[in-house]
Every structure is written in structure tokens, then in C-alpha cells.
Design a protein around this nucleic acid. Structure first.
Length: 413
DNA sequence: ATCCTCCGAAGACCCAGCTA
DNA sequence: TAGCTGGGTCTTCGGAGGAT
């Protein structure tokens, strides 16, 4: 026994089971059923999983929908509506590349990270359970976010990973409104965009606004999710989405197709207007004359880089890399387990892979207490070499240097 | 071709809220 | 209470594109 082996074992001993709430569990399973059953060949299975994860995160976000801070829009295909958006712009108008500023409703800081890392762990837990159940998932204790344990290998395999997760987009909530008018000197005119309260929040069903691309243009679709019955009813959207998936047989496929278009547009930073629904989309273009300035310099964004998708926030990448180096160095060498380290996210580092990961992905390391070693042949022949990362695991793509990781997180199987 | 200006992205650093 | 999270805000950097 040595101290390093104890470090890994003691963290494995201290880890806790991940227990989903019944509402979370039912929605996760419904989403995975939808992915299993969807016969769409245009959107790869792994993208379908990532899209499904965004719906799960949306259910959590929708839980904190409130009366205040809705935006009235007079010009949707449904007539006048009120939106509760998750980027800083009126959704209907952004889809036409016209921008009306309205503050987004992301949950407050400190809650987002807890939601997304918990939900991604639960989601992957269920995916692995369905695969063959060999790999168990646990919530780690500091400094490890998530622990994977496979006791079917000899020795048992354990993987410590850092979770960095954030949705690609969260579709806005929507409710029908009366067409409002106002009296001006010129007579009765239609009421323009303005911030308003949804006074009937606890009485009227809310819908999800889903843009859908058809016949070379964006169509405005809406799907009823259900009603939040009171301030404490934070799980209403888990039940609502499960019900929607059960009753509307087209919703999931439509959602996945739109999600995939949004993903492509996020990757390419394209002109496609669905881009404005994705996080970290930046400044609106063309910027309207009345678009608000930021305090200090510059303008407000539709969604700034702090909300970057998956593991794309640069601060997070650097934190995750340190965490992987730290955990890898603390844990090695170990005799008790086949020990792996990595990063887990919902979406691959689309924008920052080249700058932040490309140069690191092939690094292997070892220890040299002499401080003299310049060539591998100067090491003792039995000296072990380790991967800096055994794997970067995401729902959309894995970057792995390890056969166990390739096999375990091959979500196609 | 070179220089300059502008502006968005990223970085730095601090903050509040949460929780083990 | 320490250490985590994302957010706010100011600074720095560098690329695009216009002027020379």
C-alpha cells in the first residue's frame, strides 16, 4: 500500500450515489426512449442525445419562470404573444434578423452549474445503465465531480472526471396575449414591444416556441407544455415535457432537427437566424439604432461568451485542464484500480478545441525525481507513462486515448 | 504594402449565492 | 467558512478593413 493508492481509494469510498427525483427520472427515460425510436437519419444519434439533454436542462430552467419580465411582441404568426426568453432578444424578431432587446432569464449564477452538472451526470448514468449496466456512476467529492466505476474489468476501472456542461440553447416560453392598442395623436395604434407581467402565470398553459425550417424559411411553431401551478411548483416542466413527448409524436423530431441546425450555426457562426437562439452568439447584426449600450463601453449582446456552450468557456477549459492534471498526478501511480482521468461535457469544445486542446491532447507524462532525465531511455524500463487526458467525453463526440473509454462511452452501441 | 482605428473576444479580477 | 459556481465590468489583444 502506498499513499497515492489510498488517495484514489479513499475518494471512491467517499463518493455518493446519484439519485434522480422521480420527475427527473421519468423525463430522462422518456427522452432516451425518443432517441431510441427516432428513425431520423439526418441527425446523428449523438446529436440527438445532446439535443435531448438540452430539453432536460430546459425543464429545470422553466421551473423558475416568474410573473415579471415577459416581453410583449405584436408581430408573431400567432398574433400578439408574450415571451419569456433565454437570450437577450425578442425570439420572433431575432428569427427575422431584427433585434428588440429584452433581458434573458437564465437562472441565477450558482444554480446553472449545479443544474447542468447534476443533470448531465444523471443523463449519462441512465444511458450507461441502458447500455449494459457494467459502469456505475457516482457523485464525487472535491476535487472530483463525477466517478465512473467498472468492476467487470480486472483490476476494476475507475475514472475521475471534471464536468463542464452548458446547453446549446433554451427555447423561450410563450403565451398568447390579447392584441393591445394605444391611443396616440394619430389615433389608435398597435402597441409596440414592451416589458410586461404575465399576470395569469399560474392559471394559463405555457407553450414552447420552436422555430422550424421548412421550404427555405423559418416557421413559428408552438407546443403547449403545461401550467406552473404555484411558486413552489419547480418541477412543472418535467411533467409537462414528458406529457408533450407522450402526446405529440412530432415534437421531438422537430426539436432535434432545429437543434441540429442551431448547432451547425453555432459552429460556423453563420448568418442563419437560428444562430441568435444559441448561447454565446455575441452582438446582434445588424445592430439596430436603439440597441442598448453596456455600462462602460460596447453594446449589450444577444448572449455573451460567459454562457458558452458545452465546455467552450475559456475560463472553464483552463480550470478543467488544471483539475485533470491535479487529479491525474494525485492518483498515479495506483495499483488498486485501472485509473483514468478526463473531462465530461454535453457538447465537444467546438470553438476552442484548436487553441486550447489540440496541442495538449497527445501529451503523455511520467515522474522523474532525479531532475536529470532528458530521454525516455534514461527512465527505468518499468517506468509507467500516463496520458494527460485519457479522454474528453461529450455526448456529441469523444476524444480518447484509451480503449476502455472508447468502448464505455461509445453511445452508438 | 503599411499604418491606423475600431471593436469584439478574451482575460483579469472581483462579487454574490450556494453548499459541504 | 472555504471553495465552488456564473456574472459584472474594466482592460488588453488582435483582426478587419479603411486611409494613405
Amino acid at each position: 500500500m502506498n499513499a497515492k493508492k489510498d488517495w484514489v481509494s479513499s475518494l471512491v469510498d467517499k463518493c455518493n450515489p446519484l439519485i434522480p427525483h422521480a420527475d427527473e427520472s421519468r423525463l430522462i427515460n422518456k427522452l432516451l426512449d425518443e432517441v431510441d425510436n427516432l428513425q431520423n437519419k439526418q441527425v446523428g444519434l449523438r446529436f440527438q442525445l445532446a439535443a435531448a439533454f438540452d430539453l432536460l436542462v430546459a425543464a429545470a430552467y422553466y421551473g423558475s419562470v416568474a410573473h415579471a419580465g415577459w416581453i410583449y411582441c405584436p408581430s408573431s404568426a400567432f398574433g400578439a404573444v408574450m415571451f419569456y426568453p433565454y437570450t437577450n432578444a425578442c425570439p420572433i424578431c431575432a428569427l427575422k434578423n431584427e433585434f428588440v432587446f429584452h433581458k434573458a432569464h437564465k437562472p441565477q449564477s450558482g444554480i446553472i452549474g449545479a443544474y447542468t452538472s447534476r443533470l448531465l451526470a444523471l443523463f449519462i448514468q441512465e444511458v450507461l445503465k441502458r447500455k449494459n449496466g457494467a459502469v456505475k456512476v457516482f457523485k464525487g467529492t472535491e476535487p472530483v465531480d463525477i466517478i465512473f466505476l467498472d468492476e467487470t474489468t480486472l483490476p476494476a476501472t475507475v475514472m475521475f472526471a471534471e464536468i463542464k456542461a452548458a446547453p446549446l440553447f433554451t427555447l423561450p416560453l410563450m403565451v398568447q396575449s390579447q392584441q393591445l392598442t394605444m391611443e396616440t395623436e394619430a389615433g389608435i395604434e398597435s402597441m409596440p414591444h414592451h416589458e410586461t407581467d404575465n399576470t395569469q402565470l399560474f392559471d394559463k398553459d405555457l407553450a414552447i416556441f420552436l422555430p422550424f425550417y421548412d421550404k427555405n424559411q423559418w416557421m413559428e411553431k408552438s407546443y403547449v407544455v403545461g401550467c406552473k401551478t404555484g411558486r413552489e411548483d419547480t418541477h412543472w416542466a418535467y411533467r409537462g415535457l414528458e406529457n408533450l413527448l407522450n402526446t405529440d409524436l412530432e415534437f421531438f423530431e422537430s426539436f432535434v432537427i432545429t437543434w441540429h441546425k442551431a448547432f451547425e450555426s453555432y459552429r460556423e457562426k453563420s448568418q442563419n437566424s437560428i444562430y441568435w437562439f444559441t448561447n454565446a452568439s455575441g452582438q446582434p447584426f445588424p445592430r439596430p439604432d436603439d440597441w442598448p449600450s453596456r455600462k462602460g463601453s460596447g453594446y449589450e449582446s444577444v448572449s455573451d461568451g460567459k454562457t458558452s456552450v458545452g465546455m467552450d468557456r475559456t475560463d472553464d477549459i483552463k480550470k478543467a485542464i488544471y483539475q485533470v492534471v491535479k487529479v491525474g498526478a494525485e492518483g498515479r501511480p495506483t495499483a488498486n484500480y485501472s485509473f483514468k482521468v478526463g473531462i465530461v461535457s454535453n457538447i465537444q469544445p467546438v470553438r476552442h478545441f484548436d487553441d486550447y486542446f489540440a496541442a495538449l491532447k497527445d501529451i503523455i507524462w511520467t515522474r522523474d525525481a532525479t531532475g536529470q532525465v532528458k530521454l525516455a531511455k534514461q527512465l527505468p524500463p518499468e517506468a509507467e507513462l500516463y496520458n494527460l487526458f485519457d479522454g474528453i467525453i461529450t455526448l456529441t463526440q469523444n476524444i480518447a486515448r484509451d480503449a476502455w473509454i472508447e468502448k464505455t462511452f461509445d453511445f452508438l452501441g
